Amino acid sequence: MTDQGVELELEGVTVETVISAAAAAAGWSQALGVFDLETTGVDTATARIVTAHVGVIDENGAVVERKDWIVDPGIAIPDGAARVHGITTERARRFGRSPFEVVPEILAAIRSVFERGFPLVIYNAPYDLTLLAAEAARVGVPALELPAPIVDPLVLDKAVDRYRKGKRTLEAAAAAYGVPLLDAHDAGADAIAAGRLAQAIAGRYADDLDLSAAELHEQQVAWCREQTARFEEYMQRTHDPAFTASGAWPCR
């Protein structure tokens, strides 16, 4: 993560892991856009962007384009959030730019990914896309309109390996598929790891995921709805009979 936004650049990273299996996987995994946000909180209606990353990885998981931002969100960054991603209020004010400048740049970078035909990987897509839409409204610019195709490794992993025990965080999923994640909760590190994770899943479950990017997007809509319904039933049965959750994907 850099302290200032940087232009798209070559990074020359190669990954000698299970990602190499993606070469035999479905075509959607051959080159991917990647996106992640680090923020002030968990409520997508009120949280603000602190850092962001949009990039592109090739068929081997190497980073071929990237852009990183740090934002002064205009509000204090809670200590808990700062402990997670490492950006304090003071650091954001010193090095960050206004969301009125940065949010349009993030949206333009994502649109460029789609315009070039790359799917966009976002781990737990409804969080990032819903929050980004709220930020777009806040700064008065058009949000992404029906963003697609999206690849969400959280949804994929739950679909192809439904009964694996343990957490389904990015860190846990990356470890399960042998994907390095060296700096968790850095927007760039998380976005790139999520892209490589999507490729690893595509390689391991090539037959299950032998779909076009558009078909995979629609399949994830159904998978997320089913996964949420199972979670809702579990919570109602074990914790709170009135519990409800949204199964909308990729935006809520």
Score class of each variant (00 low, 15 high):
226 E>R: 15
140 G>K: 09
208 D>S: 12
190 D>N: 06
53 H>T: 04
223 W>R: 00
3 D>A: 12
225 R>P: 12
60 N>Q: 12
181 L>H: 03
141 V>P: 14
172 A>W: 11
249 W>K: 01
96 G>M: 09
19 I>H: 09
165 K>E: 15
206 A>S: 10
159 A>S: 15
232 E>F: 10
175 A>P: 08
163 Y>I: 11
151 V>E: 01
131 L>I: 03
150 I>Y: 05
161 D>M: 09
12 G>M: 13
26 A>Q: 00
7 E>T: 13
237 R>V: 07
64 V>C: 03
34 V>L: 10
153 P>Q: 05
80 G>H: 04
230 R>L: 15
243 F>I: 03
27 G>W: 04
42 V>Y: 13
35 F>K: 06
218 E>G: 00
109 A>D: 12
79 D>F: 12
164 R>V: 08
129 L>D: 05
166 G>T: 07
105 E>H: 09
134 A>W: 09
136 A>I: 05
168 R>N: 14
57 I>Y: 00
24 A>Y: 06
116 R>C: 03
138 R>Y: 12
168 R>K: 15
128 D>Y: 08
130 T>I: 03
143 A>G: 13
113 V>S: 04
3 D>W: 13
167 K>W: 11
54 V>C: 01
92 A>L: 11
226 E>V: 09
231 F>T: 11
140 G>D: 10
222 A>N: 09
196 R>S: 00
86 G>R: 10
235 M>H: 11
147 P>A: 06
27 G>D: 14
30 Q>D: 09
182 L>Q: 12
174 A>G: 06
111 R>P: 07
226 E>G: 08
86 G>F: 08
122 I>T: 04
238 T>V: 14
185 H>I: 01
190 D>T: 03
146 L>E: 15
195 G>E: 02
154 L>E: 09
19 I>M: 10
75 I>K: 10
65 E>Q: 13
230 R>T: 11
175 A>I: 06
60 N>C: 02
245 A>S: 15
160 V>L: 02
240 D>G: 06
216 L>D: 00
91 R>Q: 13
16 E>P: 10
145 E>T: 11
5 G>D: 15
237 R>D: 15
80 G>L: 05
178 G>E: 06
84 V>Y: 02
164 R>I: 06
107 L>K: 07
246 S>T: 14
66 R>N: 13
27 G>M: 07
238 T>E: 14
252 R>D: 15
6 V>I: 14
58 D>S: 01
204 R>P: 06
19 I>A: 10
78 P>T: 03
162 R>W: 14
153 P>W: 01
164 R>P: 07
75 I>Y: 10
216 L>R: 00
181 L>D: 04
219 Q>R: 15
233 E>F: 13
150 I>W: 06
104 P>E: 07
101 E>K: 09
58 D>A: 02
216 L>G: 02
30 Q>H: 14
142 P>E: 14
29 S>F: 01
168 R>T: 13
64 V>I: 12
